[in-house]
Amino acid sequence: MIIKSLNRFIFYLAIVSICLLSSCTHPKYLVRLDKDLQNADWTTNPLNYIPLMESDLASSQILSTTYSLLTQQKYSQLNKYLSSCKEETPDYLLAKTLYYISKCDYEKGMVYCEKMNGNYPLLEQLIIIDLRYELAKIKGEINYKNFLQDYQVLIDSYPDNELLKKIIAIRLRYIRYVY
C-alpha cells in the first residue's frame, strides 16, 4: 500500500518536473512601453523588447489590460480575459500574439500576427521577423545573413526611429549568440 502510494507520488513528481522544465518560464521577448525603453541600459542588456506605444494603450482596453497582465506575468488570467473577448479586432489579434510570444508558443503567435493586416505596421513587421527566427531555430535552420537582412530592411523603413535601432541591435546580438 505504502509502496504503491510512494510510486504514485514519484510518478506525479516526475510529470510536474517535466512540465516545469518544458514550459516557458522566462519569456525571451518582453513587452514594454516605448517611453520606458528610452532609458534602458543597452550595453549589457541581452533582453529582447517589444515596444508598445502609450497612445495605443490609452485607446485600447484590450491592449492596456494585456500589457498590465503581461508585465505581472499573470498568463492564465490573461488567457481567460482574452477568451472572453468576442471580436477579432486588430487590438485583440495583437494581444493574442503578445500572449503567445510570452508563452514561447511561436507557431500560434505567428497565426495571430499574420491576421493583423497592417494595423500596427512596425510591431507586425518586427514580430514577424522575431517569430520566423524562433521557428527557424526550432527547426535548426538559422541563417544569420537572412535575418540580418530582414532587420536591416526594417530599420531602413523607419530611419528616424532611434529606439528601433537600439532594439534591433540587441536582436542581432541575440541572433549572433543564438540564445
Binding site: 544569420y144 540580418l148 531602413d156 530611419p159 542581432l172
Partner: peptide, 12 residues
C-alpha cells in the same frame, strides 16, 4: 566559424 556582418544603422 562565425559570421562577421553587422547592421548598418547610420543616417541615410
Amino acid at each position: 566559424q562565425v559570421p562577421i556582418e553587422y547592421l548598418h544603422d547610420s543616417k541615410i
